[in-house]
Design a protein around this nucleic acid. Structure first.
Lengths: 94, 94, 94, 94
DNA sequence: GTGGTCTAGACCACT
DNA sequence: GTGGTCTAGACCACA
């Protein structure tokens, strides 16, 4: 189930491609700590279902995060949140 | 199809360039709220068809609106109505 | 469906491990030409179904063939019949 | 029209993904000089037609070449053969 | 279940 | 005509 509300609305036909919007939502959740480092994101199909898009679109969103290093993809295992660059030393409240 | 009538007639061969006239019509529609902020304008081809002009003419009209900030253009995505500058401070009922 | 009959019967509880027996059957089919070089073997699930064994058993049988070079495994793609060692030096005419 | 023959056959269901095979064929043509630096490759749809695959598959092949730097893609213009690193000084027959 | 690949369509902006 | 995006299905190996 999703704990997410209107914050995560996806706009079709807008200036930002759907897959980029989804990548942004996922990125925000990761930074917010919803998904912890080394833990898997929901699978492509689940993301597609949640956002109401085709799997290929959800897949492209995950690829955006993988290309920027936010997550890493392990074939047949899932997409995992990368470890933060400098975990804990600054900026996170420690 | 268009919901617009004689109001939007374009005069060819007059003192005002056709693309400026079209820009004026589009600007009026936006201010009237026909097209909402963050939503796309019709594509160049559609505008060209509606006004009976060449694509380059429709393109120039959109550029006028972009230059004045009424719309913003996202390459490969289209032209989108800008958000109003400060919709709350004056004129909107606040 | 399988074109194979009693020839390929597997004996459980005998002196020869089931996966070795299955490897032998598969090896025979390859040598017989049932499966051509560079073509994929049936997937693990299909082999498991055909021989009435667990997926891990089918997997081990394929591994036997891979270890001896009869087939080669490409991750995420399957197991493929290897090209014959030196088909040209003798018997192929070149 | 294609001047290409059996050399460029694509195998479906083989150990190598179709889009990787196509990328290999295109790479070979570029190295062979069929397509000169700064000239465009055929469009995605043409490649798809030539190889008998979906456009998305041809697209992935081009992306492979773009990722490795063999070509560069200009949106709405095409994919262009990159300039060689050191054209002519070594390695090409010296 | 996962991600990887592939098909066969579609609409779009832009050139 | 180009590439960019998107849909809605599919089969597969692998765990």
């Amino acid at each position: 189930m999703s704990d997410y509300g209107p914050d995560d609305e996806i706009v079709h036909g807008g200036p930002v491609p759907v897959y980029v919007q989804i990548a942004g939502v996922l990125r925000a959740r990761i930074k917010r700590g919803d998904w912890q480092p080394m833990r898997p994101l929901p699978g492509e199909q689940r993301l597609a279902d949640e956002f109401g898009v085709a799997r290929m679109t959800a897949r492209k969103a995950v690829r955006v995060l993988a290309d920027e290093g936010t997550v890493f993809v392990v074939p047949q295992r899932g997409a995992f949140v990368s470890a933060p660059d400098q975990p804990g030393s600054a900026g996170d409240g420690a």
